[in-house]
């Protein structure tokens, strides 16, 4: 028996044993998800070993390339297919084994139901409402999550605590990509919180997402009139630099930043923005 045959037998035998183990697993393991894991791991490795053994036996380039293609195809497609089928099965409600420890989606669902019950008992609890909105936004639609319901609760919350409620509403609109409403809501939030840094940042982010750079710059300008803090100056320079709008304003922001906050950690970046902006305006930096 030549040496390459010995090596190919050494590869083929364990490969076949792995495939055999996978098939034992598929009849012995207790639930669908465990069986799935058995066949995708053991069978894929087993098949790869058998095919490598085959190409060693023939010592033929064409055949080796073909078997390599099969191996890479199987290794790429087996996990993808397994994931797709498991996902479909979970959505269809295929049962878990009773020994399974964790099912996060179901836990979240249960949590939401108890939260809603508590909310019915003590209506007007802002903290509880906030939690219910969180759960509704996190859950997929098949498991009872719904942006519409979340919006309804957020509108209730607005009646109790306007600022927090409107912030939640803005989050919901952002997830649902309802830009017009989001913009309205964020304008009101900024008015209410007197241009708090986080709110302005969110507003600018949403505007940039919609490519309304001019308006974003305008918002920062308004915010600067109320709060003259380094973050806002940095934001102004950054938006002007990144999206090429309102360069004089950006340059002014960068200059003010340099003059007043020389010790700030954001300084090098602002310096970079200011330099570029000054060059586009043909001014001295």
């Amino acid at each position: 028996m030549p040496i390459n045959d010995i090596i190919s037998v050494i590869l083929i035998l364990p490969g076949v044993i792995l495939i055999g183990l996978a098939s034992v697993g598929i009849i012995r393991l207790p639930d669908f998800y465990l069986r799935m894991s058995a066949i995708t791991k053991a069978a894929t490795l087993g098949l790869a070993m058998v095919l490598i053994g085959l190409s060693l036996h023939f010592d033929d380039l064409e055949l080796s390339v073909k078997s390599l293609i099969i191996i890479s195809l199987v290794m790429l497609t087996a996990p993808v297919g397994a994931h797709a089928i498991s996902r479909a099965a979970y959505k269809q409600g295929v049962e878990f084994w009773e020994g399974a420890v964790i099912d996060e989606l179901k836990q979240l669902q249960k949590q939401m139901i108890t939260l809603e019950k508590q909310l019915k008992e003590s209506p007007g609890d802002a903290e509880l409402m906030s939690q219910v909105i969180n759960a509704l936004m996190k859950l997929p639609e098949e498991q009872g999550g719904s942006l519409r319901k979340a919006e309804k609760w957020a509108l209730e919350l607005v009646k109790i605590n306007e600022l927090i409620g409107r912030r939640r509403l803005a989050e919901i609109y952002l997830v649902g990509q309802r830009w017009k409403k989001l913009e309205q809501e964020q304008a009101i939030i900024c008015e209410l919180s007197n241009f708090e840094t986080d709110d302005v940042q969110q507003y600018v982010k949403a505007l940039v997402e919609q490519k309304k750079y001019q308006k974003a710059s305008g918002v920062i300008e308004k915010a600067l009139a109320v709060r003259n803090i380094p973050q806002m100056l940095y934001l102004g320079a950054k938006v002007s630099f990144r999206y090429g709008v309102n360069a004089p304003f950006g340059l002014e922001c960068a200059r003010k930043f340099m003059a007043k906050h020389a010790e700030h950690p954001l300084l090098p970046e602002v310096q970079k923005y200011g330099h570029a902006l000054a060059r586009t305006l043909h001014e001295k930096w």
């Binding site: 066949i39 069978a43 087993g46 098949l47 099969i70 199987v74």
Partner: peptide, 8 residues
């Protein structure tokens, strides 16, 4: 899995 075994 049957398809995989048939390839083997």
């Amino acid at each position: 899995l049957i398809t995989t075994i048939i390839i083997a």
